[in-house]
Amino acid sequence: MKSPALIFLGAFLVNNIILMRFLGLCPFFGVSTAVKIATGMGMAVIFVMTLASWITWAIYHAILLPFDLVFLRTATFILTIASLVQLVEMFLKKSYRVLYNALGIYLPLITTNCAILGITFLNIDNKFSLLNGTVFALGTGFGFTLVIITFAAIRERLDLAPINPSLKGYPISFIAASLMALAFLGFSGLFGLT
């Protein structure tokens, strides 16, 4: 069993959710036009991802496993996350106005973010305990945030470059992401993690 610190680093750098696991690509390309926006999105993802991993872990271990309903996993998880996001949005709007203003517009986008659901599935597939699952979700969320903010800064620079019209937009972003992933290969094998 790997220690929580290694799980965190693995999820944060080595198996970065976006660059290595290909999860959450829609927000990665869609919400990375400016550093400020990307930061908001990243924070929202960290927040929701951690909450979601707790709740789905509880549902899985308290309901689905004991009652032999594992086959309902996909359906329950996605509905749980969708309603969780709704609840969080309502709760923030009422009680934490500042946080709501910062994260509010990103919350609805998160429902369709496969990263959240993916992490809850991976938590189960890896048979993580609650602690490890939390650490894993946090590491993943930070990895997501780091990469999306960095990518946003790169794209701000790409906007000013004389790029061929047929490469503008998605193609050059993909190629930039490819080079980013290439650089992140430098982390592979860190602490023996693969």
Binding site: V35, I149, T150, A153, I154, E156, R157, L179, M180, L182, A183, F184, L185, G186, F187, S188, G189, L190, F191
Partner: peptide, 27 residues
């Protein structure tokens, strides 16, 4: 990378990674 990484030498990957962070550092 030299101590804990998957490669004996970390110079080129470290520079590549910092290149990636450069626009962010600048801003």
């Amino acid at each position: 990378i030299r101590i804990w990484g998957g490669y004996p030498e970390g110079v080129s990957y470290s520079i590549l990674l910092m290149n990636v962070f450069t626009p962010l550092i600048d801003s």
